[in-house]
């Protein structure tokens, strides 16, 4: 039965896989073009070459590597084959509850690319015979991470192949756009933002970049295996864990700043008018709270938002940060500032 013309791409790929798995040694390109259903559609040698190269890339990205072998004999052409062992999934014996967890994890990504990747993974796991999913163990829980955007795909490819990326990047402190050349190490999502850490070749130092500040496309350039990926502590690079836990002393109006109160270690209710007044500000009629914090600027953001309901008594640097915000806000009512 000769293959009918205009074979759909999925079926052409399927026939290529079956042919290259079953071939005794290897198939040359010419044998593929003549023999495998779908490739006869190519109107020219160039069109066939493009089609075949694209199909090889598609299969590799699906975890089905095509290997090249010396066809031997009288031909100096290379041959192609697929080794069964190279693509087989080792047995994954998931219990129904575990499969339920995996199905839930599949909902984590809001990102279209990541959703495609994970639903394909689910198809493969199901084909490997995993049983029915049971969702009881994780009932009611819905984790979700916002979309990473277009940079994710090329960055992941560059990390896997250890190739350099270049892209236009808008700096946070100046707003200026510059082209950056980076050896990417790891992609990370923290606190609602996507980042990647790597070695910045222009600045000759490790840097963290925020994906949403990348303007335009990320280009994967240069040779593969161009660098080694070190052990990366993304959190240290982002500065989140920098600085130990400290304790703030706050004077809070009764019944106010409840979300801050919930984290307090110690609450001394309603201080009398004579005890803490003076330079540090009003404490009369207020509760004095001891609240642990790590990030000074994040905590200052939160406390400034309470305006007069919270007064920072200590430490001085946190108090200064809050005052800086309040002074700036007090000037907002005046004319626009340049």
């Amino acid at each position: 039965m000769p293959p009918s013309p205009s074979v759909p791409p999925a079926e052409r790929l399927l026939n290529l896989v079956i042919a290259l798995v079953n071939t005794s040694v290897a198939m040359t390109k010419q044998q593929v073009r003549v023999g495998v259903a779908g490739y006869g559609d190519a109107p020219s040698t160039e069109a066939f070459e493009r089609m075949f190269e694209r199909d090889k890339d598609t299969l590799r990205s699906l975890g089905i590597p095509i290997v090249t072998v010396d066809a031997g004999g009288h031909s100096d052409e290379v041959g192609y084959r697929i080794d069964n062992d190279a693509y087989a999934l080792p047995p994954v014996d998931l219990t129904p509850a575990e499969l339920g967890v995996v199905a839930l994890a599949a909902q984590l990504w809001s990102d279209k690319t990541l959703r495609t990747d994970i639903s394909r993974a689910m198809t493969k796991l199901r084909a490997a015979g995993a049983g029915e999913a049971a969702g009881d163990a994780v009932a009611g829980i819905t984790p979700r991470v916002r979309a990473a955007g277009d940079a994710y795909g090329p960055l992941l490819e560059a990390i896997s192949e250890r190739r350099v990326v270049s892209f236009r990047y808008r700096a946070a402190n100046t707003g200026q756009e510059m082209t950056r050349h980076v050896e990417p190490w790891r992609i990370a999502a923290r606190g609602g933002g996507w980042y990647f850490a790597g070695f910045d070749r222009d600045r000759q130092a490790p840097r963290v970049f925020r994906l949403s500040r990348i303007t335009g496309r990320v280009r994967v350039t240069g040779a593969a295996r161009a660098f080694e990926i070190p052990d990366v502590d993304v959190d240290a690079m982002l500065g989140e864990r920098v600085g130990a836990e400290r304790t703030a002393v706050l004077a809070v109006v009764p019944e106010r700043a409840q979300a801050v109160r919930a984290r307090a270690k110690e609450v001394v209710p309603v201080v009398g008018p004579s005890e803490h007044t003076g330079r540090t500000g009003r404490t009369d009629g207020r509760d004095v709270l001891e609240v642990p914090f790590r990030s000074r600027s994040a905590f200052a953001d939160e406390l400034a938002a309470y305006a007069d309901a919270v007064v920072v008594l200590a430490p001085g640097d946190l108090r200064g940060e809050v005052l800086h915000r309040l002074r700036a806000a007090a000037r907002l009512g005046e004319a626009d500032r340049g």
């Binding site: 990205s61 999934l89 967890v101 994890a105 984590l108 993974a121 984790p143």
Partner: peptide, 22 residues
């Protein structure tokens, strides 16, 4: 064609990163 496909890099990344986060 009897062997189930192994997970590609991107698929493994999407799956394992999601499970680790959870």
């Amino acid at each position: 064609m009897t062997r189930p496909l192994r997970l590609g890099t991107r698929e493994a990344v999407a799956l394992v990163a999601a499970l680790r986060a959870m």
